[in-house]
Nucleic acid binder design. Structure first.
Length: 857
DNA sequence: GTAGGGTTAG
């Protein structure tokens, strides 16, 4: 027997020496004695003082008093409570020796529960099978055991058999069944749960069973029927603290955060009920969700005033979690450092707090400390929290070694860890391994799908991402795309101008009620803007129930990119006066870029000067770079140059110099252009576009020798020009065209169409701008090269394949050349087609021979 | 009978 050390008045009582000879009185005394022992043992067990109960049992045996059929269940309950399987097994053997065990229902029942609670479900099932007799409690014990191991289906099967064997049903049965109902498929669980509810109503379980009512509240909430939970709660008057806690946690589970906080206030105002550790740890997540830092602080204060609450590990980690979720990582750390009892939950809360706030190195350090200092082995939750920090932390280079660690610790089966690993492989460019993990997973959840889709978006394999989006909806588990999915797939629709796909996703968001979400709405506004559909972009924006800074920024950006500078500034002023969202640094990037694209120099200058004083947004080097662009485009090349010279060195410098270089091409300034290019060759020697621009500038000025020199330099530096590439969506497919290439299946048809079109244009007075061609060859050859430009191929394909009257939307990876710009403008009138051409910088919207940018680009 | 810490996007 395991010895349990404790001191109690009982010890003196049991160690009193006994007489060796037995008289009748002595026998009576002995029986009396046994009764007292057992009674003491049972009262300890009833009071959940398991250590005392076991100790009593041991002393009783040592005193030569045989345990009876009341003693074993009490001792077994104590062993269960202490989760001591070996003690339970010894009790089991001892009970068999004394002739109890399975023949005695009470002992058998307690054995089932003991094995289940001590981590041995198999042992529990074996005992149940061997029992000669079973009563209602036996079945309850079995069902509860199965529920404990998440064997919900078998638990319900057991109930069906039980109903054929037992006529009586107790509140214990009902509570177990309700628990099982909450964890099976919604339709099955809800149907059965409602039957149990009705049964309880008919049989008076409401009047005598708080447990039943509390379980009902939780059951409805877990199955998403929060209205039913609330009505059960409201109809029940005999509420205790568990009832209130069940209601609060149900509300939080169903995202009814405001209601949850209100319920907490109801508790506080009532005199007889006081919030306990369950209340606190249930309600704190609601504070995070609603951004209620002050409410969180009040709760924290309440915890500090009742210091027994702070000893609860759930409360402590919920506080850490709340502060970190609200961005107060340092307060979270302060609380973390105050907690005397170090448990996994607490460490994991702090590690994920660091990781989610981008403090990767702190997260990694704590991950190490957890084992080294606290002696706690990281578990699956730790791993899933820390993996993103490993992936993002530049100081940690050999990312993949972490997979070995995961396997060594036996955590590779965990879904959250697998998802995090998939993300890691996607980010290091190993989509094959990411996919392999995905297809090896038994239970893929929405996050698994989202991670794989995001991986494909990240690695530029967009068609795979779109295919997965479709495949996902036929997943056997009935998974559906969620908000994150939509936010993942909408940006590539915008960048590829895949308008039909974008509209399809928009439709999906409406059908599934996801379009009211700010992030989804903003992504839709952005997508329509990038697809060149200003009207739909505006319509989505206007219909959104809630907008934030991002929403306004993407709308302003869209108007700016389309050359509607005045409108963009008007929207900026509306944003300020609506007070719906505050302008931030990105807002000023958007308005300054808008001014730049529309040549609104004065407006841009005054906004730039006022942004700090009037709007409280600090100027960054990126804003300076916008101003360089604005001045340069407007032809104020010297001012632009002076501004660059005043800028601090940093990664934004390349952008600034390339703005100036671009401006020099527009305004044909060879001298400044070559200065800008020289800086760029140093900063980004591998970037082909710089060489091409400078070469263009020389060529346009007729300086062919210099132009050739630049091309030679490019060769010497081993820089290869990124091939021009354009996309157009047609027939629910994205078609890609590379400059001078004929890999498209319809290539020859497009080519002959383009030759005819070119002739027709020239007959109608079009003069090709051959200055865009770098090669020093005959004009006829230059025209051939011009006709091979990818955007012309894409526009030609659009004219052939898209129904008359529809808009042609093309996007290009590089800047659109002068001749393609003029061609599109000419075609928009000659072929009576609206053409929207998007390049790396902005939109060119051609209608009836006019470009929205007014040739200012 | 009631409670937590995790993965995806921005």
């Amino acid at each position: 027997m395991v010895m349990v050390h404790y001191s109690s008045p009982l010890v003196t009582f049991v160690s009193t020496p006994r007489n060796q000879t037995q008289t009748q009185t002595q026998t009576q005394t002995r029986i009396q004695n046994q009764l007292s022992w057992v009674e003491t043992l049972r009262s300890y067990a009833r009071a959940d003082d398991y250590t005392a109960a076991l100790s009593t049992f041991i002393s009783m045996c040592n005193a030569g008093v045989a345990p009876n059929h009341f003693a074993f269940p009490a001792a077994l309950k104590a062993a269960s409570g202490l989760r001591q399987l070996s003690v339970g097994q010894q009790l089991h053997a001892s009970a068999v020796k004394h002739g109890y065990s399975h023949s005695m229902v009470a002992v058998g029942n307690t054995l089932v529960t003991m094995y289940a609670r001590c981590g041995d479900l198999g042992g529990a099932l074996r005992v149940f099978d061997k029992m000669d007799q079973r009563d209602q409690v036996s079945w309850n014990s079995l069902i509860a055991a199965l529920c404990l191991y998440d064997e919900w289906g078998p638990a319900l099967d057991a109930l069906r058999i039980m109903l054929t064997e037992c006529s009586e049903i107790s509140s214990f049965t009902l509570v177990s069944i309700l628990l099982a109902c909450s964890n099976v498929a919604e339709s099955v669980g809800l149907r059965l749960g409602k039957e149990v509810h009705a049964y309880g109503l008919r049989n008076g379980f409401f009047t005598n069973g708080k447990r039943f009512t509390n379980a009902l509240i939780s059951m409805y909430a877990k199955l998403g029927q929060i209205e039913d939970s609330i009505s059960v709660f409201q109809c029940f008057e005999n509420r205790d603290i568990v009832t209130w806690n069940s209601m609060i946690s149900s509300l939080v589970k169903n995202e009814q955060y405001t209601h949850a906080i209100r319920t907490l206030y109801d508790i506080v105002q009532s005199t007889e009920i006081k919030p306990d550790e369950f209340t606190i740890s249930s309600v704190l997540p609601a504070c995070s969700q609603l951004d209620l830092l002050n409410t969180g602080r009040e709760i924290h204060a309440h915890v500090l005033k009742n210091d027994n609450l702070f000893d609860n590990p759930f409360v402590a980690s919920a506080l850490v979690d709340m502060y970190c979720n609200l961005g107060r990582v340092e307060v979270g750390r302060f609380v973390f450092d105050q907690v005397p009892v170090q448990r996994h939950g607490l460490w994991n809360a702090m590690i994920s707090g660091y990781a989610q706030n981008g403090l990767d190195e702190e997260a990694l350090k704590l991950f190490v400390d957890m084992e080294v200092i606290a002696g706690l082995q990281p578990n699956e939750t730790t791993m899933a929290s820390v993996l993103p920090a490993f992936v993002k932390c530049d100081a940690f280079e050999r990312k993949e070694t972490i997979h070995g660690y995961v396997i060594k610790r036996g955590m590779e089966e965990d879904r959250f860890v697998q998802n995090a690993l998939m993300d890691m492989y996607a980010r290091v460019g190993k989509m094959d391994i990411s996919r392999r993990i995905f297809y090896s997973m038994d239970a893929k959840d929405v996050v698994s799908w989202n991670t794989l889709i995001a991986g494909h978006v990240l690695s530029g394999t967009i068609s795979e991402a779109f295919e997965l989006l479709v495949e996902m909806q036929s997943d056997v588990n009935g998974l559906k795309p969620n908000i994150v999915t939509l936010i993942t797939v909408l940006p590539p629709c915008g960048s590829l101008v895949a308008l039909a796909k974008g509209k399809e996703i928009h439709g999906f968001s409406i059908r599934h009620g996801l379009n009211d979400d700010v992030a989804v709405g903003s992504a839709l506004v952005d997508m329509y803007g990038k697809c060149g559909c200003l009207s739909l972009c505006r319509k989505v924006f206007d219909e959104m129930p809630k907008r934030n800074s991002v929403t306004w920024n993407v709308l302003i950006m869209a108007y700016g990119m389309h050359g509607h500078g005045e409108e963009a500034i008007k929207l900026f002023n509306e944003m300020i006066s609506s007070k719906e969202a505050k302008p931030n640094e990105v807002t000023f990037i958007a308005v300054l870029a808008a001014c730049s694209h529309s040549g609104m120099v004065h407006c841009g200058l005054s906004l730039f000067q006022e942004m700090k004083s009037k709007y409280g947004v600090k100027q960054t080097q990126d804003h300076f770079a916008c101003m360089v662009d604005l001045l340069g485009r407007a032809g104020e090349l010297n001012k632009s140059y002076d501004l660059i010279s005043s800028m601090k060195p940093g990664p934004h410098m390349a952008g600034a110099w390339s703005s100036l270089l671009g401006a020099c091409r527009i305004h044909k300034n060879v001298k400044l252009g070559s200065i800008a290019a020289r800086h760029l060759f140093e900063l980004e020697p591998d970037e082909a576009s710089h060489y091409v621009l400078l070469s263009n500038i020389y060529a346009a000025a007729g300086q062919w020798r210099e132009a050739t020199e630049v091309r030679t330099l490019m060769r010497l530096n081993n820089v290869r020009k990124e091939p021009g590439c354009s996309w157009i969506e047609s027939g629910n497919q994205i078609h890609r065209f590379m400059a001078g290439e004929s890999s498209h299946p319809e290539s020859s048809r497009i080519h002959s169409y383009l030759v005819n079109l070119w002739d027709k244009m020239k007959r109608n007075g079009y003069i090709p701008d051959v200055s865009s061609v770098l090669h020093d060859v005959e004009d006829e050859e230059k025209e051939k090269i011009l006709c091979g430009h990818s955007e012309k191929l894409a526009i030609a394909f659009g004219l052939i394949s898209k129904p008359p009257g529809t808009t042609i939307r093309v996007t290009k990876n590089l800047r659109v050349c002068n001749d393609c710009h003029e061609t599109a403008k000419f075609l928009s009138k000659m072929e009576r087609r609206e053409i929207v051409l998007r390049d790396v910088r902005r939109f060119h919207h051609f209608r009836d021979g006019v470009c929205s940018c007014g040739d200012y680009w």
